[in-house]
């Protein structure tokens, strides 16, 4: 505990650990908020409609998930600089949305498909418009799956290392994983402090994970493997 309080008060690289945890939280929450809306719309499209290019889109989702982040890092770095988002948390949010979206759509579509179609048809019979049906009928029923998917995106963005390492220069903007990496390389013998910082970074992830573990594990397995 003394290590924890020391890391919390004295901090790493001139900033309190709270600062890095806050940066990580901002990036992860921003990614989830922006990403889940887009993912829900796209997941509804592939789970509820039959249209041309549907298979193409699903295969595209599979393929883009395999692109290594380190490969796209170089063009994304230049793009983020050109947009004036270098050294800003918003730039990290944008990049993380791109990298979490394909899997979020893939995972969420199984949850959308699990909602019985008859409910929406019943709502349509009652004269509800498409928007009302989506918002009042589908959304509440998909909400638990949306939470599980969002938490997966949250954890991915919270843990993300290489973009945060490259797209943020100022130490005040470091996210927790980068701060931890920096701390480890600077004071490689202060294991108490390093472990305290790792623990602080890991606790939110484990807590979130425990909250939704059952639904998330089934969603993950369904998303990755349909055997």
């Amino acid at each position: 505990m003394e290590h924890v309080s020391r890391v919390l008060t004295r901090g790493i690289a001139g900033h309190s650990v709270w600062r890095y945890l806050l940066n990580s939280a901002v990036v992860a929450l921003g990614t989830v908020l922006a990403g889940s809306v887009v993912a829900l719309l796209a997941a509804t499209a592939v789970a509820r409609f039959r249209f041309r290019f549907r298979t193409t889109f699903l295969i595209l989702l599979l393929i883009v998930q395999m692109i290594p982040a380190e490969a796209l890092l170089i063009p994304l770095f230049l793009m983020v600089r050109r947009l004036g988002l270098y050294d800003q948390l918003l730039g990290l949010v944008v990049v993380n949305v791109g990298f979490t979206l394909p899997f979020a759509i893939w995972m969420l579509r199984t949850f959308v498909a699990a909602v019985p179609k008859e409910l929406e048809e019943a709502a349509a019979i009652d004269g509800a418009g498409r928007l009302v049906t989506f918002w009042r009928v589908l959304f509440p029923l998909v909400a638990p799956g949306l939470v599980a998917t969002s938490i997966f995106s949250f954890i991915t963005a919270w843990n993300e290392f290489v973009f945060a390492l490259t797209l943020i220069n100022d130490q005040g903007g470091y996210t927790m994983p980068v701060a931890l990496g920096f701390f480890t390389s600077q004071r490689s013998t202060d294991w108490g402090g390093i472990m305290a910082a790792s623990t602080l970074m890991t606790i939110p992830v484990i807590v979130f994970f425990l909250l939704v573990q059952r639904r998330m594990v089934s969603g993950l397995v369904a998303g990755a493997v349909k055997g």
Binding site: V37, V38, A39, L41, A42, T44, A45, V46, R48, F49, F51, R54, F57, L60, L61, V64, I67, A71, L72, I74, P75, L76, L78, M79, V94, V95, V97, G98, F99, L101, P102, I105, R130
Partner: peptide, 29 residues
């Protein structure tokens, strides 16, 4: 017929802008 495409549009823009276009740029570079 346009509903699914409209729902997909934001997702396609994100994937296109943040994954496919950088992929192309990487090859070009």
């Amino acid at each position: 017929w346009a509903v699914p495409y409209a729902l997909l549009l934001p997702g396609l823009l994100v994937i296109g802008g943040l994954l496919l276009y950088p992929l192309y740029q990487m090859v070009e570079m």
